[in-house]
Structures are given as C-alpha cells and as structure tokens.
Simulated scan of single mutants.
Amino acid sequence: MVISKRKRSATEKRNLVTFTNPDSIISEQFRTIRTNLHFINGKSKNKILLITSPGKKEGKSTTAANIAVSMAQQKEKILLIDGNLRNPSLHSIFKTSNEVGLTDVLTGKAIFEDAVYSSKIGSLDILTSGAILFNPAELLASHTMTQLLQKVTPYYDIVLIDSPPALEVTDTKIIANLCDGVVLVVRQDKTNIDSAFESKKVLEYAKAQIVGVILNEKNS
C-alpha cells in the first residue's frame, strides 16, 4: 500500500512534551511507558492498542499523543487514530486539520490514503476523527471499521487509538473489542477508585484485555 499523506507542521504542538522537550523528566517517563508496553506485548504482537480513561479530563488524549511520539522517535512506524468521534482532540494537539478523517473513511467519502496525515515526527501518521456525526457508535461498530483496521495494521508497528471515556458512552466498548489491548489512564486528583474498577469491569465485559494502567498527574 502506497500512502500519499498531506503534510502539516510539527512545530508548537500543544502538550507534546516528548517532542518539544525530549530531555525532560516527563519525556523520560513516557519512554518508560513505551518500553513497558513493548515488554508487555512481548511475542504476542499486540499491534492495536486502545487508550482510554474512566471519565473526562484525565489525560488520555495527551497520553496517547506522547506515547505515539515516543514510539515514533524510536524509528517505529506508528498510526495514531482519533476514535473519539464525539469530542475529538488529537487534531488540536498536533495542530492539524480535521477536515477529513476517520468518519469520512467509514462513510465512504474518502479513502484512508487521502485521509491520513504525516505528523513529520519520525514515522508517525495521524488519522483524525473527521466530521462529528450523529451516529458514532454505529460507524465504529460497522464492518468498515473492522476492515480498516485489518487493512492498515500490516503497514505499522503499532496502531494506537484514542477513544471516549469508558464510562460515558458505548463507543469505547465497541472499539475495545476490536483491539489487542487496552491502556487505562487515571488521574491522581480526579479519578476515584470506584470509577477505575467500574471501567475495568466495563472493558472486561467487552472482552478487552487491559494491558496496563497509567497514573497521570497532569491535566490534559
């Protein structure tokens, strides 16, 4: 598959500390997370990982973006997908357009090769959410979504998907069922233990494999 990607500037990206300050302590922590995920994956080749959180403002999107950058800096070919079709944010974090994205691919208005963007950070590609539509759960549960993931995974070392909060909408359960593993992000001063355990039950009910939990001390 030959991918013709539209380019966007990688400078001044909001909350991308792994890009703007790679020598910082926080960047080193993300490198540790990256390494741990590789150890967890081991020989199982969990190529599609979902990043979610129990509720809003717990840092999952910023975490997903920085993990993706950290992996790409290791010369891995990474695809980061904004699967939060209700309240997308990856286009804002990477300062790129959201004119064409996942929803356009799923509705047949665009093909993946025309919708994916190069971040110009290593080999990190980004598929933004696209236009906000009224039927996100139906789109994510469609055969087209399954086909898309089957199509793109052979061309990337890791596919990361940022999703809505696990306890708010059914979308996350749908995406989790399509992924090889789930990383749950919790925020120290916001997430209560009941929400964390409830998220675990919700994801396990969706037959998702939780491969790790990240404690976030910063707001996203």
Score class of each variant (00 low, 15 high):
I158A: 08
N219V: 14
F19C: 11
V152D: 02
E28S: 11
A166Y: 03
S9H: 07
N66I: 06
I111C: 14
K109Q: 12
S89A: 08
S92G: 14
R86W: 03
K77L: 06
I48D: 02
R6N: 02
T20K: 15
S89T: 15
A131H: 13
E99L: 15
E168R: 10
I81H: 07
L80S: 00
V152E: 00
S118T: 11
Q29G: 15
A64V: 12
S142M: 15
L85G: 07
S163A: 08
S89V: 10
V183D: 02
A64F: 03
T62N: 11
S9Y: 01
T20E: 12
I51K: 14
V152T: 09
I132S: 09
P136W: 06
T144R: 14
K95R: 15
N98P: 12
V116N: 02
G212Y: 02
V17Y: 05
D125C: 04
A196G: 07
T35C: 01
M1Q: 09
V69S: 02
L90R: 07
V169Y: 04
Q147P: 08
G59M: 01
K45F: 07
K13M: 02
S118K: 05
I214V: 07
S9D: 02
L127N: 09
T128L: 05
G212D: 03
P54S: 06
T62W: 09
K201C: 00
K95H: 05
T172L: 00
S70W: 07
I78Q: 05
I26L: 13
L160I: 01
Y156G: 12
D189K: 07
P54H: 00
K109T: 04
S4G: 15
K43T: 09
T18R: 07
T103D: 10
L37T: 03
T18L: 04
